[in-house]
Structures are given as structure tokens and as C-alpha cells.
Amino acid sequence: MKRSIADWIKWTAFYAFVVVIVVISIFPFYYAILTSLKSGTAIFRINYFPVDFSFQNYATVMTGRNFVRSVINSVLVAGTTVLLALFLAVTASYALSRVRFRGRALLLVTILGVSMFPQIAVLAGLFELVRFLGIYNTPWAMVLSYTIFTLPFTVWVLTTFMRDLPIEIEEAAIIDGATPWVIITKVFMPLLWPALVTTGLLAFIGAWNEFLFALTFTISETQRTVPVAIALLSGASEQEIPWGPIMAASVIVTVPLVALVLIFQRKIVAGLTAGGVKG
């Protein structure tokens, strides 16, 4: 009996903590939803619960010029960026984590160095590069420039995780005569799902939310991505900020990401439990 009370306290404390985490995480998002359902002066008034359900702002955003198109662009750009980064990073991190060669540490640090400049400082050079390659105003301009921040990140994280995989698995595969490519795809990838999905997700969000490059490298509305489309939402005048539509748009573009997490979350928690290998 005593024990069950202690358990009950533990259980309550645990769930209380979960609730606190969830509330803090989603309150601003909840507030965004609330705001997106308001219009006009109501936006300047504080409410904790929805007072009216006007979907006007959502209609404005969805029927707005090219908004849906921007969402599709973003999905394609972010998706391509992530696939490219993961492909390059998985192979590279195999080499960096499992094969000995000289200058490995130096190479890792150099890769990191690419991410050490402020975005705005590399903008002029990247712009020249993009124009030189003739990919200005195409999605490739963004895919290319996003590798600057996605690639170092994915390489580092995957290298770290791959290094921790037990040696016995690889040995067994080598004895079976597996080539490095087979080892990566057939042996390591299944074990690395949590890491792959997590880095992929984080890189996806990074590419999805990027604003500065997307704004600089596109000029047609049909090529633009979501953050630019949101920044393009405007009020009737220069000074007015259209809060309602901005919040509605933010809610709309956050939903696919939440869906993505829900889809991939089984993979996040798959991990070594399936393999049952000791470290």
C-alpha cells in the first residue's frame, strides 16, 4: 500500500512535468491560432480563449497569390536538401568514423568551419556563385546554398552516432565479404534510424524556415518558399502588419512539420532495441 502511494506520487509528478513541458511549448502556438481566428481591432485585445471563429484569415492566405505553390516549393526544396545532405553525409561519416586515415580530425574541424561565418557575410559571394552557375531563380539555388548549413551538421551528428556502433557487427559483415557500401546500407542504416530521422528532421526544418537565401536567390513568385511568402503578406499600407493572416499562414505551415514528426516518430524511437546488440 505504502509503495503504491509512492508510485502514485511519482506518477503524478512525472505527468505534471509532462504537462508543464507541453504547455510551455505550445502556448505561443495556441496563441497564434487564437490570433489567426481574430480580425481587425480584436487582435490588439487579450483573450485566453477563442471569442470568435472567423476563418477569414485562412481563406485570405490560402486563396492568396501562389501561397499553395510556395508550400509545394518549400516541400521540394527542403526535401531535396535533406535527401542530398543525408546521402552525402551517410557515406562521408562512414569514412570519417570507421576508417582510419591521417588528417581525420582536421577534416572534421574544417567541415565545421564552413558553418562559422554569419549568413549575411557569405551572401554576396553565394549570389555570384549562383549567377555563375546559371541557377538563379530556380530551386537549385536554394538546395545548393542550404548545403552550407545542413551538410556540416548531418556529417558531424552521423559521424558521432556511427562511431558508437559496436565493432562486432561490422566485423561479422566483413567476414561475410560485404563491401563498404553494403555495410552502410544493409548493416548500419537500419541501426541508425533514430539518428537519421532526427538529423533529417532538424535539417528539414532548417531548410524549411530559411529566409535570407530564399529571398535573395528568387525573383518570381512561383519560385518562392514559405518564409518569403509569409514575409510577403502585407497590410493595406507599408506600416500596417497583417497579424491575422501572418498567424494563419504560420499555423498552416507548421502543420506539415507536426505531421512529419508524427509519421517518423516510430523511427525516432526504434533504435537498437530492435537489433538487441550490446555496446
Binding site: L215, I219, E221, V228, A231, L232, S234, G235, E238, I241
Partner: peptide, 8 residues
Amino acid sequence: LVPMPAST
């Protein structure tokens, strides 16, 4: 027209 964000 090439539309830009309202932020000057």
C-alpha cells in the same frame, strides 16, 4: 512586378 516583403 517582383513583389518584396513590406519590411523596408
